[in-house]
């Protein structure tokens, strides 16, 4: 047994039709490959990838790559809540965002935010709260550095803010 079998011509044609149908009816989010590349650009991949639990905008992550306003990420030892607000525009006209975050359980951990080609830094307080102003709109990824009870760095999937 080889574990695979050849498919007859008629079956192959019908499978091609099915492939086209699913590709049209339920495509991968248009920015999924881009977000994957963003994650893979991390220098250190020995991290835990948090899962996106909830995003407040219905239709977020769809082909339109809408902007999130409230996002929850879940990792084995940590939940990350993030709210995003518009915060004016930079000198070059780039829209800016303010991120308010909460790590649960609360812990004073260092938080890195990768936004485009910039990396911003914040420190969560003992309750796990942190805030960052002036984050350029676009793909953003958080990295929570290990410390205290957190043994391994947690990174979130990249999201549009």
């Amino acid at each position: 047994m080889t574990g695979t079998e050849e498919v007859g011509a008629a079956d192959a044609a019908l499978l091609r039709d099915l492939r086209r149908m699913w590709t049209a009816a339920d495509p991968a989010p248009a920015d999924l490959a881009e977000r994957v590349m963003f994650t893979l650009a991390l220098e250190d991949l020995e991290v835990e990838l948090a899962q996106l639990q909830e995003q407040s905008l219905a239709g977020a992550r769809t082909a339109a790559a809408e902007t999130a306003t409230s996002i929850t990420f879940h990792a084995s030892q940590l939940t990350v809540l993030l709210t995003v607000q518009a915060a004016g525009a930079g000198a070059d006209g780039t829209p800016l965002r303010r991120l308010d975050g909460w790590l649960a359980p609360g812990a004073a951990l260092a938080v890195e935010v990768r936004a485009g080609d910039r990396t911003l830094h914040a420190e969560a307080d003992a309750d796990g709260r942190f805030a960052l102003d002036g984050v350029p709109a676009g793909l953003v990824q958080l990295r929570i550095q290990p410390g205290g009870p957190l043994l391994r760095a947690v990174v979130t999937p990249a999201v549009q803010v």
Binding site: L32, T39, L40, L52, Q53, Q55, R61, T62
Partner: peptide, 18 residues
Amino acid sequence: NREAADDVVQATWLALVR
């Protein structure tokens, strides 16, 4: 659902590159 599928794709790539 779409979000869980998205997570699976990301986790698969991370595992592959690792």
